[in-house]
């Protein structure tokens, strides 16, 4: 039932009356996110991710279709939705420069109706959680980009949202700051189960680390939807391992491995030019129908006099998935206006 879902969208369309021609930012998006789920929207700039978030956070009305958040309609029940959501965007400079970090958060706590004392308590708690204790009395305009984004994140937590929207939250942050933010998000997940997250990003690592399910979005459409593992399976159904041995297996060599149940192929990694010339080691690329076949391969290798030196699983990235679905990478945009 749509009422039981955290997010429900059917045929959500958004057309902008841009010049010289209209831009369809969303072309009929269907989406269901269960309560407690962390859901990611992965796609390049201009894919429509932010447009969808704006619709779900009641900033934008869809041109067509319906959308509900926490069982409330985004067009007609905005007041109720706003009581249970919050939003954190990346790369923004919002805020009042002359307020301290602590004051800024308190001000927003009042916008969410927190009683004064409760507001200050919550503010101090979130400042500690996000690691801004040293900066709490610094004016917002003096904070670094990473600190401001932590502050934004803390603001996003003020009302203990049931649905949190993170719109490219780590945009423009350095590696450490981005990692911190992801850790805060995971900590929130652990501390507050049952809360839902919708994350938009074009960083694959972020989507894989945070999200239970991911939708790959491009040009206003969802191209694929599933867990990270399911999405990778679309590109590469088999499990591919790179196995490094001290020498080639005796008594049949690679052919003996290929005959093992569950092994689809076994080739020298040299055949695809991935092995360094002149090495004493032998590298094999083994394709398995299932990860469970790996045990028999390792056993067979050992029985044929070779020793395992290294083992690594080779998996397609989500960009590989995207390329497979769309035919171009995340960086190969075609210059469409980004109205998201």
């Amino acid at each position: 039932m749509p009422d039981d879902l955290a997010i429900h969208a059917r045929g959500v369309t958004r057309v902008y009356k841009a010049k010289p021609e209209r831009v369809t930012a969303l072309g009929g998006v269907d989406l269901d996110v269960a309560p407690g789920e962390y859901f990611g929207l992965l796609g390049p700039n201009g894919a429509g991710k932010t447009t969808l978030i704006k619709i779900l956070t009641t900033l934008l009305i869809p041109t067509a279709g319906t959308a509900m958040v926490a069982g409330f309609d985004v067009v007609t029940e905005t007041a109720k939705i706003r009581r249970v959501i919050n939003m954190v965007s990346g790369g923004e400079q919002s805020g009042y420069g002359l307020l301290t970090a602590r004051e800024q958060l308190w001000m927003f706590s009042q916008f969410y109706g927190l009683p004064n004392r409760e507001g200050w308590r919550k503010v101090d708690e979130l400042i500690e959680i996000t690691g801004l204790t040293e900066q709490k009395d610094q004016k917002v305009r003096t904070l670094s980009t990473g600190q401001r984004q932590k502050l934004n994140f803390a603001r996003g937590m003020l009302n203990d949202p049931w649905v949190l929207f993170l719109d490219e939250p780590t945009l423009g942050l350095d590696v450490a700051a981005a990692r911190d933010l992801r850790e805060h998000t995971l900590a929130w997940k652990a501390a507050a189960p049952g809360r839902t997250l919708l994350l938009t990003t074009h960083y694959m690592v972020e989507a894989e680390q945070l999200c239970d399910r991911i939708a790959i979005v491009d040009r206003g459409m969802i191209l694929a939807l599933g867990t990270p593992e399911e999405l990778r399976r679309r590109v590469q159904a088999e499990s591919i391992f790179r196995i490094e041995l001290d020498r080639l297996p005796q008594n049949g060599g690679l052919a003996a491995l290929t005959d093992l149940p569950g092994v689809l192929s076994a080739v020298s990694a040299d055949d695809d030019g991935t092995d360094a010339a002149g090495s004493d080691r032998v590298a094999l690329k083994v394709a398995l129908a299932d990860d469970s076949a790996l045990t028999s391969v390792v056993t067979a290798v050992s029985e044929r006099g070779s020793h395992l030196v290294g083992l690594a699983k080779s998996e397609p990235s989500l960009e590989d998935v995207f390329v497979e679905l769309v035919g171009r990478g995340f960086g190969e945009e075609d210059g469409k206006d980004d109205l998201s």
């Binding site: 249970v84 109706g113 049931w162």
Partner: peptide, 28 residues
């Protein structure tokens, strides 16, 4: 215990929240 419950605010709470928002925005 759930979002729908959290979204139901009484009239008193709505009024108090809006008054707090007035104070909050006046502050800066």
């Amino acid at each position: 215990t759930n979002a729908r419950e959290a979204a139901e605010w009484s009239t008193g709470r709505i009024i108090r929240s809006n008054l707090r928002a007035v104070i909050g925005r006046a502050y800066p």
